[in-house]
Design a protein around this nucleic acid. Structure first.
Lengths: 201, 201
DNA sequence: TCCTGTAGCATACAGACTGTATGTACGCAT
DNA sequence: ATGCGTACATACAGTCTGTATGCTACAGGA
């Protein structure tokens, strides 16, 4: 009992983030009323505007959270990899798994670039999702050197392809089959792009 | 003088689309006030709500226009191609050129999926931009048969990569250099994905 | 322990914007 | 000429965001 003020501060902020994430995920940013968010958090809009400068700032904080969580999952998934190439594959699978969360798709992939602006979104993604991808690409290129491939363009081309794949997955009628086909096609893409075989697979 | 009513109808609608496209491109959908759009068109909001059900319907009509224009340019660019593979390359160049237009990036690539919903956007894109890409991919696969490649996943993976490339191009400091590097990397990607040499591999 | 300041919210208010309802003038067919 | 529907303009209501102000309980110094 008798929570200290600094504890309460963190608790309230976290609750606003939680409920904001939930409402943003289901309704989308534009149709998410701040009144609904604070009501679900058992607060009023006064609390929201005390903790965040405006609605957009709350959204950006949610985006940061989502991005961080996804990057953590991807990093963790790549750890047990036998090779850099396997690490890239495992990371890719972890990314697609993370996109099972509606917040990852609606908030992070769809609304964020529009609400925050593409430039700002790219900056955030560059510190999280795309960073993990860049690390994977660099590792593969260290393992399979290829002068023709520039890491940076390769990274964002793959990033775009992966984001699109994640969205497309949830439009398919048979999700399991679609997932297998995507996994297969991504593996093929990686193999052909980075060189079919290199000291065995 | 004395324009007939049916002429006036088309003229007014076209003007709303013109000004809407301009305002949406610069301000973004959310910050584009309908009042500003109709003022630039020399009208009032009554005219807008007569021609379109709501603001979103106007935006969707603009998106359709932009999508159609882009697809037309891509189709036209691919005509003089010597081979299906060249057609794909020429088409991608035309796409990147079309994305010099801010409306193509802000309206079509960034705002449209968020405002119209990803599903609706995918449907529109499927009839225009992605359709041209699919045609190109199918032609290349007819030219260079490859049982391992499924046309549909390959198409949207490439679509995602291309959209990302188009956005990234305009973040680069030296746009000309970035463009050359992207062209080179896309060509490399196509060659390796579809098989480096003719009916070989 | 008491007193005071301020953090952490709640409440009240103003402005902006969308969508709708209503008004109106002009063209066009009869 | 006259009645009617199209193509707008005008007026209004509802919703939402952001801000300004009010209130209360706790923290910290004397």
């Amino acid at each position: 009992m008798a929570r200290t003020k600094v504890e309460q501060h963190a608790l309230t902020r976290a609750e606003l983030l939680r409920q904001g994430r939930q409402i943003f995920s289901t309704a989308g940013y534009a149709d998410a009323a701040t009144e609904d968010i604070v009501r679900q958090a058992g607060l009023t809009r006064g609390a929201l505007y005390y903790h965040f400068r405006d609605k957009r700032a709350l959204f950006e904080a949610v985006v940061e959270d989502v991005a961080r969580e996804m990057a953590d999952k991807i990093d963790a998934a790549a750890i047990p990899a036998k090779s850099a190439f396997d690490g890239l594959v495992l990371g890719t699978h972890a990314f697609l798994d993370a996109c099972l969360d509606p917040a990852a798709r609606r908030v992070y992939l769809v609304d964020a670039p529009s609400v925050l602006g593409w430039h700002r979104w790219r900056e955030i993604d560059g510190r999280h999702g795309m960073r993990t991808l860049r690390v994977g690409v660099d590792a593969v290129l260290a393992e399979r050197p290829d002068r023709a491939l520039s890491p940076e363009p390769v990274t964002y081309l793959l990033s775009g392809a992966l984001n699109e794949a994640a969205m497309w997955l949830h439009e398919a009628k048979d999700e399991a089959t679609a997932r297998r086909e995507i996994d297969r096609m991504l593996l093929l893409l990686f193999e052909r792009l980075f060189g079919g075989r290199r000291k065995g697979r």
